[in-house]
Design a protein around this nucleic acid. Structure first.
Length: 485
RNA sequence: GACCCCAUGGUCUAGAGGCCUAGGACAUCACCCUUUCAAGGUGGUAACGCGGGUUCGAAUCCCGCUGGGGUCACCA
């Protein structure tokens, strides 16, 4: 039975790298009909951010990623919060100490820092000297109540091999590793140590994680060996880099799942886009559901190279989803944005109709909301270039009034009848139909872009259309139109 | 700096020695369509980092160089 896990530390928000790692774990588990476990890696109590765990859970769920076991859903291998497993870590530390695989180190932070500086000035790699490793067992310091850390006794010879499912055989010389800390002076385990125990105790078969962990893997393997535990399979995923080719961080703008949601990116689009960062379907299909992805997912098809995320393609993919998903679902997603925009839906046309009209030219939910706003509130400003172009003629107010007059007489308010009015009126005045269409659009929406005029008017309604045309005609004459900045 | 990973257009990628005149997607440019904007259609620009091997034959295998990334914490 395949068992994999995603183990975030609750020190921030769910960013796209973490989401992608979780996603690949989830897909791998589903593909192999295994189990996907969520574990919270809160070994560092000092850096814990309140609400972070909840935020991550919310973020993952929003993407459609679910888990079989976790802190919120329980399971047979709990607890799923590392801080609650501390007794296990202490047991293991004791075992390592007893069998001589680890030792107490009493070196102070200052000592270590000086040593490090000294080595660096000599252009040598900063490694721990092993001072306490060499202390005789009867050294009185061991009986003292001075604070200590526990260090792993790393073999000085030989090599540790990581058989990576994605990268193949990676060899590390043991002598380049130093005696790393496995337990802090406050008694808490260090990540590299806790992770081994937890993965073992939770019967994790495949450790799938970001490439930044590859260099730490030999340390973990050394711990597995010292504890006589079976070593799981490892797979290190390529990194996701920011457009400047560096590790993703806050200064790169939107990088968290929450930020993308706030910008109006649909979770379906985000998760689909993330899927394509480092993995591709056998037939290069790009738009797919998680079900399809789970069916096709294979670590052998995971890229070795780091990927740079491309916001433009994400947005494109979002627009694809916006135009193909059901209106009902789209409205559900759009509602929070509509509310934030303070649009009063009780007076305008049915949201389903307006959304249908603008969805195919919007790229995000924010665009969408902005594009349909004029249905629910009269334009406060008018596109300045459009004004110069379509309102410049002295005849404009008169033309708008004639149209308003005729439109108010219309018995059947639909696309075809509206079109006929414009055709007839253009012919009667001996002008192009466009000379009527553009001023109308600008007068009614305040913009020069948008849905086809007749569809738009049909949905806006007769009363409102006519009223706006009269109002704007007068406003032009009185020169009290505000141009859009 | 040491160690480790990686290397196909601006970006994501296909490619497991001949199927490659290197394919697809986003982006970009041009044109068409058109009541605007999108969408759509057609076409274009654009890549195997460099140098050595191996082989009848290399984007694909090997070595070196260069470049990029990651790790070197009492962070995870």
């Amino acid at each position: 039975m395949v068992r994999v896990r995603y183990a975030p530390s609750p020190t921030g928000t769910l960013h796209i790298g973490g989401a992608r790692t979780a996603l690949f774990n989830y897909l791998f588990a589903r593909h192999h009909h295994g189990r996907f476990i969520l574990r919270v890696e809160d070994t560092d109590r000092a850096r814990l951010v309140p609400g972070s765990e909840e935020g991550m859970i919310r973020g993952l769920r929003s993407l459609g990623i679910t888990w079989n076991e976790g802190p919120d859903v329980g399971g047979d291998y709990g607890p799923y919060r590392v801080s609650e497993r501390i007794h296990r870590h202490h047991e293991a530390v004791k075992q390592l100490l007893d069998q001589g695989s680890a030792y107490r180190c009493y070196c102070t932070t200052e000592e270590l820092e000086n040593e490090k500086k000294r080595l660096e000035s000599l252009k040598l790699p900063p490694r721990y000297s092993g001072k306490c490793r060499l202390r005789p067992p009867d050294d009185p310091i061991f009986q003292s109540d001075k604070p200590f850390v526990v260090r792993m006794k790393v073999p000085t010879e030989g090599e540790t091999v990581v058989d990576d499912l994605i990268r193949g055989r990676v060899v590390f010389e043991n002598r380049i590793l130093d005696d790393f800390v496995i337990q802090k002076s406050d008694g808490n385990p260090v990540y590299n140590f806790a992770v081994v125990l937890d993965d073992h105790d939770m019967a994790i078969t495949h450790v799938i994680r970001g490439e930044e962990h590859l260099s730490n893997t030999p340390k973990q393997i050394l711990i597995y060996r010292a504890l006589s535990l079976p070593v799981p399979e490892f797979a290190h995923l390529p990194m996701i880099l920011a457009p400047d080719r560096t590790k993703v961080s806050k200064r790169h703008g939107a990088t968290s799942v929450e930020e993308y949601r706030a910008q109006g990116i649909l979770p379906e689009a985000l998760v689909n886009y993330l899927l394509l960062l480092g993995w591709s379907a056998p037939d290069e299909t790009e738009m797919m559901t998680l079900d399809q992805a789970a069916e096709w997912f294979d670590l052998a098809r995971v890229q070795h190279t780091a990927a740079i995320y491309d916001y433009k393609k994400l947005v494109w993919m979002n627009s694809q989803y916006m135009r193909t998903m059901s209106v009902e679902t789209l409205i559900e997603y759009a509602l929070p944005f509509v509310e934030a925009r303070h649009l009063d839906l009780s007076h305008g046309p049915d949201l389903a109709r307006t959304v249908e009209l603008v969805r195919e030219r919007a790229h995000t939910l924010q665009d969408l909301t902005e594009a349909l706003a004029f249905f629910y509130e009269r334009p406060k400003t008018f596109d300045s270039q459009g004004m110069a172009k379509h309102f410049a003629l002295d005849a404009t107010p008169a033309r708008l009034r004639v149209l308003a007059d005729r439109l108010s007489q219309l018995r059947t308010w639909d696309h075809d009848h509206l079109a006929r009015v414009y055709d007839e009126e253009a012919q009667r005045q001996g002008i192009k139909r466009a000379a009527l269409i553009h001023p109308t659009r600008l007068a009614v929406t305040g913009k020069t872009v948008g849905p086809g005029l007749f569809e738009l008017l049909e949905v806006l309604g007769q009363e409102e259309t006519v009223a706006r045309l009269y109002d704007v005609a007068t406003a032009i004459e009185e020169e009290r139109l505000t141009p859009t900045p």
